[in-house]
């Protein structure tokens, strides 16, 4: 029986420059930050990041890992605009594919179902259609309606964070929203799930309602045990967002010195165990 337990550094070793990486969670909620920081510390570059964006996108932009972001928003929730992402956008150092939130879901679903696109009305009439990567398709039925053909968001890799998982790669969320983590995994070639705690399969089943078992081992290649792995984003019921830390992170976008200090202290400090020691988690 396969034991899929690996480390954040093992995930990084599976990635290559120029890859398209999907990141689960939503805004500043249940983001796989320990893996994000490992990528930020690596020599990887020119990544395309696909995310319902939060500090995952901000950290990777600020550490120079990103060529392009596919997104509908990039927010810290309690701080509406992600300051590091904003800075990268205004400096012109990254390109983007702008999307609507629902359109983004269809792109992931198309990739997960291995079709080139899914049709929708969403996007028609908006500036999204000025982007050459988003095209329309004509209904072959009697209505002959012109619809948006949302391109499949095929991912080279996906990373997500769950509350619990077992060593075989089954995963469980215990908060109120699964977000789109299963779709990110299904849309990807290489699939990695960090979890707060690795438990036995029996404990997993006993730990919550059956509907909380959103991730099954068909969807995962690697499991990373990372207590506080989503810090400073929220991961209820295990912990809420660390608002004070998030404010410190946001403030570090103000000038290069502040960012250099933040980066040295919390990102380049070392692995996740060292991060936990530095933050006091």
């Amino acid at each position: 029986m396969a034991d899929k337990r690996i480390t954040e550094e093992d995930v990084v070793a599976e990635l290559r420059d120029g890859m398209t990486v999907g990141i689960g969670g939503w805004g500043s909620r249940r983001k796989p930050m320990s893996i994000v920081r490992a990528i930020a510390r690596s020599s990887l570059k020119d990544l395309t990041i696909v995310s319902y964006g939060g500090p995952d996108v901000g950290v990777l932009c600020a550490t120079g890992k990103v060529a392009k972001v596919v997104y509908a928003f990039c927010s810290l929730d309690s701080i509406p605009l992600e300051p590091h992402f904003r800075k990268a956008r205004e400096a012109g150092s990254i390109s983007t594919l702008e999307m609507d939130e629902g359109m983004f879901l269809l792109g992931l679903q198309a990739a997960a179902w291995r079709v080139p696109f899914l049709p929708t009305r969403v996007g028609l009439g908006s500036s999204l259609m000025e982007q050459p990567e988003i095209r329309t398709v004509k209904s072959p039925y009697a209505d002959a309606e012109e619809l948006v053909a949302v391109p499949a968001l095929n991912l080279d890799a996906a990373i997500v964070h769950m509350n619990r998982g077992d060593a075989r790669g089954n995963g469980q969320y215990l908060g109120v929203d699964p977000y789109f983590d299963d779709l990110f995994l299904m849309a990807a070639e290489r699939r990695f799930m960090s979890v707060e705690k690795v438990v036995t399969t029996d404990e997993l089943i006993a730990g919550g309602p059956l509907q909380s078992l959103r991730i099954n081992r068909l969807m995962t290649d690697g499991v990373i045990e990372a207590p506080f792995g989503a810090h400073f984003t929220q991961c209820p019921p295990d912990y809420e967002r660390d608002e004070e830390f998030q404010r410190e992170y946001a403030a570090s976008a103000k000038d290069p010195d502040a960012w250099a200090a933040f980066r040295a202290k919390y990102i380049d400090c070392g692995d996740h165990a060292e991060y936990r020691r530095v933050v006091g988690l």
């Binding site: 509908a72 509406p80 956008r89 609507d100 359109m103 996007g123 009439g125 500036s127």
Partner: peptide, 20 residues
Amino acid sequence: MDKPKAQLLGFRGAPGNTIQ
């Protein structure tokens, strides 16, 4: 859109809401 003077929210759900 390709090099904004000020990045704001992004498109969020606005295209979908207004058309649906």
